[in-house]
Nucleic acid binder design. Structure first.
Lengths: 337, 337
DNA sequence: CGTGAATGTGAGATCGGTATCACATTGCCT
DNA sequence: AGGCAATGTGATACCGATCTCACATTCACG
């Protein structure tokens, strides 16, 4: 039933040449006679020969694979990046191996090991922790290309692509302050801790720049689900005096906030103003449309792919560090107080 | 700088045993003396030995890889399934290689070839076309496990997992009819053609069961983006007499319909009733909340993974075919006429 | 104390493709 | 015609891990 796969040896035999010649004909390199090449290709066709990348890889040292380790593939942010990476890398004959760390440092370590033992050519990672990057340091030693996206703290020599989280958050909070808001809540997410810390820093610095004190009771960190976000927001707004505005750290949290506010009977923007980090598809559809700080997500994946391809082709110039600016998109969820 | 990777030969030398013994110690099989095993493990540790899966794979015949070919990884439906697959398969030591077909038959064919040459252990696919499955037939011949999800037409001998698209659509349209609607529009998506055909069949059969004629002008097929959906809906509702209700084929189309209706000044459900196929996160958040036909997405990935694991471990019983029922979730987007 | 079983180890083949080297043959130039 | 480069081909080593087989011990038991 299941005949075993056709090898180059079979093809060579069929074409009555040696394995070496067959290989040369199939990969066109070295000297091959025209008629021999013809016969080999014909034989390969007839037998249904299929390259065995593994054998090839054993000789070359690596597989046409590039690993991608996002925090969570279900997060539309990472799904988009995965899509862009896959598209570009596949054009160049690479396959993208996606393995989600689920924002767990230990799992991330294991994945790195696992991908290395698969001899991937490079790794593109959104690290769970920007602090503990020890498992990445050894990659550099072995000359494995590494591109870090979304979170980077500078303690590993590799390329990085991030957005200006602090500046973006500052701009969003600035808007709220300029509309007269003084009690502005902050809703963060435990999952993407590093990004959240930077956005929180932007929040603090915006308040301080306007001479406003930072009230720690206005700051909430919730679990990384809509449900947790809802609960956290309810707690925030049960306080007296309640916030008059809220800044949320990503689209999941934004969604949670809107659900929570509605359930408490608070109207946006009449009762509460809202600014969220991250744009999302339905942001223009909700009622009201949500004012957001958007990041140029469409540029991150392609750039990461480009850098990776450079590195794979042997470019070993100094690490590149890219910081993209954010953009404040004003819609209808902010009102003057 | 970049010392070359440590091989089992190095470990064996360090531990002063033969490669064979080293291999036995590291994979604990066969007979190995306690002290020898000890020394080998120590040496491996000291040298930082890392398994080379490629060499292993060349011997065994396959890599710990399973391919997943969805139509589009950005579609939350497939992202969810990818996540569930990855989680379960990784537990068993497999890596999930995700490659999106972008709903393109030729690309799908190439991907299948490409994944085969990587010696994956099995494939999980949401076929672009349920009609032309020729590229899958040869898989079966070579005993490569294949699990088809979301779309299946029966002409390949493999396991399949689908939902009752026709029944679900019928139920949704039934609801609209029972509320007195007679001019019910249908909005489909060119991308996932097969699924759409089944849902369209459900739509037709529901109307016919109630003795209503099917008006072809009420049926629109749009491109697979929100933007196209919006345009298609606007065309549908510009007709006279206009529809009083609309059934949409997936969450993307549902979103598009809501945006279009709003832009035309039509209110849901006062002016137009809406039922969508596929539940989505924000369905309970929009105003009004959307009545949907939901599929048990949380069961598809895990089941597919389970079947794949069975097949990989050599189970070769007859192909299994699973059809999940859908569930009508009534929220606030349908009103009596 | 001898003999067969259980245990431990190493040499070498193997997986499929590629690279190197050696050996032929042809062609071109002086 | 002689000589050297260009061209075509096959034999063989190699990549790293595993597996089979042969061989050496050790052990137990009659």
């Amino acid at each position: 039933m299941s005949r075993k796969p056709v090898t180059i040896k079979d093809v060579a035999a069929e074409a009555k040449v040696s394995r070496a010649t067959a290989a040369r004909a199939l990969n066109n390199y070295g000297y091959v006679g025209g008629s021999a090449a013809e016969r080999v290709r014909e034989a390969a066709d007839r037998l249904g020969y299929r390259h065995n990348r593994i054998a090839q890889a054993l000789r070359r040292g690596d597989l046409p694979l590039i690993g991608f380790i996002p925090g969570d593939i279900q997060n539309p942010f990472f799904a988009r990046i995965a899509h862009d990476l896959d598209k570009r890398l596949r054009q160049q004959g690479h396959n993208l191996l996606i393995a989600s760390s689920e924002e767990d440092l230990d799992q991330e370590r294991e994945l790195v090991e696992s991908l290395r033992s698969l001899s991937v050519r490079g790794l593109i990672v959104a690290p769970t922790s920007a602090r503990d990057m020890s498992h990445f340091q050894s990659l550099a030693k072995d000359n494995m290309p590494l591109v870090v996206i979304d979170r980077y703290s500078g303690n590993v020599a590799c390329d990085s692509i991030v957005v200006d989280n602090e500046g973006g958050a500052r701009e969003g909070v600035d808007l709220l302050v300029s509309k007269g808001h003084r009690r502005i809540a902050f809703l963060g997410d435990e999952g993407r801790i590093f990004t959240v810390q930077q956005r929180l820093a932007g929040y603090r610095s915006a308040l301080q720049a306007h001479g406003l004190a930072v009230d720690e009771r206005m700051i909430a960190l919730s679990g990384s689900t809509t449900k947790h976000a809802v609960e956290a927001v309810i707690r925030l707004f049960r306080q007296t005096p309640a916030p008059t505005a809220i800044f949320t750290v990503d689209s999941l949290m934004t969604t949670g906030a809107m659900i929570a506010l509605r359930s408490m009977g608070l109207r946006v923007p009449r009762d509460v103003s809202l600014v969220g980090f991250d744009d999302f598809d339905l942001a223009t559809f909700t009622d009201p449309q949500v004012t957001v700080v958007s990041q140029p997500i469409e540029r991150i994946g392609p750039l990461a792919a480009e850098i990776m391809l450079q590195r794979i082709s042997g470019d070993s110039c100094a690490p590149q560090h890219h910081v993209f600016p954010t953009e404040l998109i004003i819609r209808g969820s902010v009102a003057a107080i």
